[in-house]
């Protein structure tokens, strides 16, 4: 199963690059939904021979939230706010891809320095998780629309979640609690914030929100 786990992790990393290079919000939302499904597969693959029912349920619930509910909220937000594209990001898409390569290098380096890396099933799990966290952070600081920033936040969350699963074998309860809390916070922040934003203002461009008007 290690080979399948590696394949899933590589797909997760590619989805990070896709988020960096894509301008269509719809496509980005679909990408984070796919990330959710792939993250749901990780625990099942990494403990393949003895998957407990509890593990399966936790994985299924979080996959459901990450792949169905959060994307649904985001889709509703872009429909109501009537935005389709990230028009003018702070960092261009091609440059973002190049930054992505740098982030990937950094996360490989960090993962090789972390003593915890040996604890996980696949040696790719820690670098990919760090990469997703960095990607999410990069999206948050380099994109203008609030939806894109929320997507970045979600990618960051996904990275933390993946990082948690790397050690799920040793600290099961803690990780599960953490995971569910993460998800809860994600729903809370995005559901409420975006909804308020789109109700209150016509635009969800944060640059315009920052400038005062009479």
């Amino acid at each position: 199963m290690a080979a399948w786990l590696d394949a899933v992790l590589v797909l997760l990393m590619l989805s990070g690059f896709w988020l960096l290079g894509s301008s269509r919000l719809q496509a980005c939302i679909r990408t984070v939904a796919i990330q959710g499904v792939l993250l749901g597969l990780i625990p099942l693959l990494s403990e393949w021979p003895d998957v407990t029912p509890r593990l399966a349920v936790v994985a299924a619930i979080s996959a459901l939230i990450k792949a169905v509910i959060l994307p649904y909220l985001l889709r509703r937000a872009i429909r109501e706010a009537n935005v389709r594209h990230e028009v003018d990001p702070m960092v261009g898409f091609t440059t973002s891809l190049l930054f992505g390569i740098g982030l990937w290098g950094i996360s490989m380096y960090l993962a090789s320095r972390l003593p915890v890396a040996e604890a996980s099933v696949s040696s790719l799990q820690v670098p990919v998780s760090i990469f997703m966290v960095l990607c999410g952070l990069f999206l948050i600081v380099s994109r203008n629309t609030a939806v894109m920033q929320a997507i970045g936040y979600l990618a960051l969350e996904n990275g933390i979640y993946g990082f948690g699963w790397a050690f799920a074998i040793e600290e099961p309860l803690l990780v599960e609690m953490g995971v569910l809390l993460d998800v809860f916070v994600g729903v809370f922040v995005m559901g409420i914030t975006i909804h308020h934003l789109s109700r209150e203002f016509d635009t969800i461009e944060t640059d315009e929100l920052a400038s005062l008007k009479d």
Binding site: G21, W104, M108
Partner: peptide
């Protein structure tokens, strides 16, 4: 088109890093 071609470079760099791991 440049983005598409740079994506190819990105893919191969990632593959190279994975190979050298």
């Amino acid at each position: 088109v440049p983005e598409f071609l740079i994506a190819a470079s990105v893919l191969s760099i990632v593959a190279l890093v994975l190979m050298m791991r």
